[in-house]
Simulated scan of single mutants.
Amino acid sequence: MDLASKLDTRVRIERKTVTLDPAYGTQEASWSVFANVWGEVRDVLPSRAERLAETITIANRPARVRVRYLPGLAADMRLIIGGRIMQIISGPAMLGRREAMELIVEDHSTEGDAP
């Protein structure tokens, strides 16, 4: 099976944009669409997670996502997969000769964010 046959999930990739509020001088963050692509999404199973870096915990529902090579894809972006908002915690790593990219993502937590 080639990569194209495994890309069965629609993934929206968003980039963070920070602007300055002219009235108050505070920063306002918003997300804009970077790309809508097909991807392969696989949740990381507990048995496999034990072999990964200690910073990845199963409570955060990590997943591995593969997409076709996408220039400009960066670790400070986020993914929307179905109803899940996912933050990139590892990658993007290039596979082959610009054939695909792989990311490790986990459910986004607003814990610690300002209201």
Rank of each mutant, 00 (worst) to 15 (best):
K16S: 08
D8L: 03
I89A: 08
D21F: 03
G96F: 09
T57W: 12
W38Q: 10
V44G: 06
P62V: 04
G112L: 09
L73C: 08
G25N: 05
R78F: 02
K6F: 06
N36M: 12
S5N: 11
D76Q: 02
V18K: 06
E102H: 09
G72H: 10
E40L: 10
G83A: 08
E50W: 01
A100M: 08
T17K: 10
W31K: 04
L52V: 06
A4N: 11
V41E: 07
V33R: 12
L79M: 07
I81V: 15
P46N: 01
L7A: 13
A100P: 07
A114G: 10
L103M: 14
E106G: 01
T26L: 08
M1Q: 14
F34W: 03
L70P: 13
A114W: 15
T57K: 15
M1N: 11
R15G: 02
P62R: 07
M94K: 13
P46L: 01
R42T: 07
L45G: 03
L3V: 14
T55P: 00
L70N: 12
E102F: 09
P22V: 01
L73V: 04
T55S: 08
E40Y: 10
I13K: 00
T19N: 01
R42V: 10
A100C: 00
A23M: 00
M77P: 04
K16H: 05
T19S: 04
G25L: 06
P115R: 14
D2V: 09
L103R: 06
A23S: 03
L70R: 13
G82C: 05
D21M: 03
P115K: 13
H108I: 00
P22H: 03
G112E: 12
R61Y: 07
P92C: 09
G96W: 14
E40F: 13
R12T: 05
P92F: 12
P71S: 02
A59K: 11
D2Q: 02
M101H: 08
T110R: 15
T57E: 15
L79A: 05
R12Q: 05
R97G: 07
T9G: 09
A23H: 03
G83F: 05
L20N: 06
W31R: 02
R42Q: 12
G112C: 11
I13W: 04
